[in-house]
């Protein structure tokens, strides 16, 4: 499928088309690496946020009830897993980035407007870059909220375990469901970036 840029070029319209051109002027490499950064960055924000929500509650509870401290590290590990998802996807996306053509020289040197020339990279590269970017956003955001979710549940888990030890396993199951949310994002991210 021919991109908008190619259509413009074919029609001989080299001029500014509208604000949407801005996106085409950004190098595909930039998009791709932005996706990588978002996937790891947002995941880690989510994980860190979850750990501090869980951690501060765990810390306070374990003063009176030291027995809960090692048991409830599981909540922290669940939050940590969210960051690991981000790292895995970031690595997968990085290998995809290497498939992008290194050499993005313009196809046609005759054109006056250099910005428009840049648009005429091959469509496959542009498509891959956006796919990687999209995958990065899906993984990053889903892991951000997954981390917060697991963190809040983990805080509740620590508090209730201190009161009634029998609730620990029950809340842990809820926490596992929470941490599955991040996994959904990871699956979609892999599919999204699959053909890139």
């Amino acid at each position: 499928m021919a991109s908008l840029a190619t259509q413009c070029y074919a029609a001989g319209q080299y001029n500014y088309q509208g604000w949407k051109d801005m996106f085409y002027c950004i190098s595909p490499h930039s998009w791709a690496y932005m996706g990588v950064a978002l996937s790891i960055g947002l995941s880690i924000i989510g994980a860190a946020w979850g750990i501090f929500i869980t951690g501060s509650s765990l810390l306070g509870s374990s003063i009176k009830m030291p027995r809960i401290k090692s048991k409830n590290l599981i909540s922290v590990i669940f939050c940590e897993a969210v960051a690991i998802y981000g790292v895995i996807i970031a690595i997968i996306l990085l290998t995809k980035c290497e498939n992008l053509p290194k050499d993005l020289t313009p196809l046609n040197h005759d054109t006056v407007n250099t910005f428009i020339i840049k648009l005429i990279i091959d469509d496959q590269a542009l498509w891959s870059a956006f796919a990687i970017f999209g995958a990065g956003i899906s993984v990053g955001l889903s892991n951000l909220f997954c981390g917060v979710c697991v963190g809040v549940t983990g805080a509740g888990c620590a508090l209730s375990d201190a009161q009634t030890p029998s609730t620990f396993v029950k809340i842990l199951i809820i926490e596992i469901f929470g941490s599955a949310l991040g996994l959904f994002g990871v699956i979609i991210g892999i599919i999204q970036a699959g053909k890139a």
Binding site: I53, S57, G60, Q163
Partner: peptide, 13 residues
């Protein structure tokens, strides 16, 4: 929890 998580957990335990 950023500010008050720790004291809240203390009071709850």
């Amino acid at each position: 929890n950023a500010d008050d998580g720790y004291p809240e957990a203390i009071i709850r335990s």
